[in-house]
Each structure stands twice: as C-alpha cells, then as structure tokens.
Design a protein around this nucleic acid. Structure first.
Lengths: 177, 177
DNA sequence: GTGAACATGTAACAAGTTACATGATTGA
DNA sequence: TCAATCATGTAACTTGTTACATGTTCAC
C-alpha cells in the first residue's frame, strides 16, 4: 500500500489539497495505522495528475500559494478499486516501547513507570481522536469497522497497562527520574 | 530504535550468530513488533564489532561458512543500558488491512471475508507463537510483560474480527472470489 | 512579537529491503 | 528431486523522512 493509493482513497471521499490530505492522515481516524509526510504526498499527487488519475484546480488565495485542489477521475476510481482487490499485506507493527520493556528488570523503576505512562498516553490519545471523529463525522460501514477494530485493540492495550501500573510501587509524591 | 541496539539486546541474553539473531526475530516472541533482514543485521554486527561493543569468535563448520558467534562486551552492555534509557518513540503501526476495510462498502463481500479471515489468521499466528515461547522459554519479568501486552492486544483484535465474521452472510459451501 | 496554521515544493539523507553471489546438507 | 535450513555477505534499490526555501495571517 503506497502513498499513491492512499491519496486516491482519501480523494475518493472528497476532493482535497495536499495540505488537507496530510491533515486528514494526522487528525483523521486513520492516524493510528497510516503515516505520510509532505515530502511523499506532494510528489505522489503530481504523479497521479500526470497519469490522469486525478485532476487539479487551482484556488487563488491572497498572501499564500494557490491551493491546489485535487479530485479523483474515473480512471482514478478504477485504479483504486483495482488496488483494493489485492489481499492486504501483513500488518507492520514496530514498538520501541515493547522492546524496552523486555529489559524491564534491568531498568530503574522510575523509568519503567514513565515509559508505561507515555505509552498509555499515546493509546488514549488515539482513542480520543477516534471518539472525536465518531461525533463529528459521517460514520459509514467502513469507518465503523475500522474504528471498532481500533477501539478494541487500543483499549485492550490501555487496560493492560493500567493494571500493570497499579501493580507498581505506589507513585512517589514528587517523581524525578 | 535501530538494528544496532536490537542486536545488542538479543546478544545480552545469549551469544549468537547473525543467522540466529534473524531466527530469533522471526520466530521469537518479538516477531510481532520487530523486523529485520540479513541485509541490515550483518552490517550492524560488523559495525558493533569494529566499535568494540561485541566480540566475534569463528566456529568452524564443514561444508558451510564459519559460524561467527557474537558476544556482547562490557562496553556493549553499557551502550545498551544507555540506549534503553531513552523514552521510546511512539509505536509505528501500518495496516493495509484496515485501509482496505475503510472501503468495505464498495468491495465484493467475498473479498471482504477473505481479507478478514487472513487478518484473523495472522493474529492467531502471532498468538500461537507466543504461547509456544511461553512453554519452551525462560519467561522472565520482561518477556512476561511484553507477552501479556501482546496477548491482550492481539486477542482483542481477533475477538472483534470473529464477531464481525459471524455477522456476515453465511459462508457459501464453495467459496470463490 | 512569537508561534501556529495555512500552503507548496525539492533535495539531501536515512534506514532499511530485495536480489544476488555461493554452496553443503537434510528431509519429504 | 525439490524445497528448506544452514551460513555469510554486498550492492542496488525502495520508500520514505527531514530539512530547507518562501511567505502571510491570525491568535495570544
């Protein structure tokens, strides 16, 4: 799954600029399983345009570059449909947190606590974002499915961490690492 | 978290060759949150050796290249300890599966079923590997923690998918996409 | 008046994977 | 006899990120 299909997918819901696509990836409900930077989005959009899979329309703005609004073409929709019919590759999951916890026994407890708290914060942050999307978004079949999955997985992780935290020595009043 | 620290970490449990490290990453209990190929492991080990963080000992073998057994040095342990004291970066999770499911409504149901079944299979595969490691391995504090986390998260995902599968139209006797 | 949000784009860089090169042994 | 396992290593390639370049407006 490359950035090209990702852009086509997002544009299939509504037309958008590169900037808006980035925002959607960061703040939308995909954020916990997708990533992309400007350095990959802008070139991808130019390329899609060159191939006729999207069209561009420049919206004039005062004091900043024209906003280039991209929209998917019929060819683009076909390319997307084709791209979606591939059985997806295995999930890729990388966790420095879990790797660190493997050496839990040799780390200061204060550090372990901090690391767990940070991980818990990250999980809750993702959960919160999803709840927000639920409230102010159009939740169709697909988004309902992925949010349900995300909530199941993230909240299971959060519950586990909360239980482990509770088992740790009581938190000192003033913590310092 | 780069491959260097990963190698140091694995070597801190026991000495091993590059080949064995790769196997551990693939089949050990880290497999679901860590990845590495020979192309990154071998150069990392040479580099660590050049820096004095590991030592090498060549074990002669008949009919195949000498097995280079690496062991971490005192300096290496210090470098590892230092590397572990950094608050871990946010988890990176990429899922083509979830991205595809976002377009669930426009995909043939047979394909959706296949994709879900494949994802379920992947999750169960990871769970199974962990159970195996539990049985034949030394489960210390750290591995207990990460396996507990993995089991919590993976089984929550699996449960969700099983529920969704049950809601789908009953499976045709002979399925074809 | 300082930083964030808006808005696009490129070039240099990082980090890793894939494919190639080599070759014996073992089990199905 | 065919694939897998053992065993190392390099070079080419992918894919993407980070930093730079540029500039306005708005909120605190």
């Amino acid at each position: 799954m490359n950035i090209r299909i990702l852009c086509l997918g997002i544009l299939s819901f509504r037309e958008a600029s590169g900037y808006e696509i980035k925002k959607e990836i960061e703040e939308g409900m995909f954020s916990h399983f997708i990533d992309a930077s400007f350095g990959s989005i802008y070139p991808a959009l130019s390329q899609l345009n060159a191939e006729g899979l999207v069209t561009v329309r420049a919206e004039e703005q005062t004091g900043r570059p024209d906003k280039k609004v991209y929209a998917v073409t019929e060819q683009g929709r076909e390319a997307l449909a084709k791209g979606l019919l591939v059985i997806p590759a295995r999930d890729k999951y990388k966790s420095e947190f879990l790797f660190e916890m493997l050496f839990k026994a040799m780390l200061p407890e204060a550090h372990v606590r901090l690391a767990i708290e940070k991980q818990l914060h990250d999980l809750k942050d993702d959960l919160l974002r999803m709840h927000e999307c639920r409230q102010l978004g159009q939740v169709d079949q697909g988004s309902e499915f992925i949010m349900g999955y995300g909530e199941a997985v993230l909240s299971a992780g959060a519950r586990y961490l909360e239980d482990r935290l509770a088992e740790l020595q009581p938190k000192p009043a003033i913590a310092a690492e």
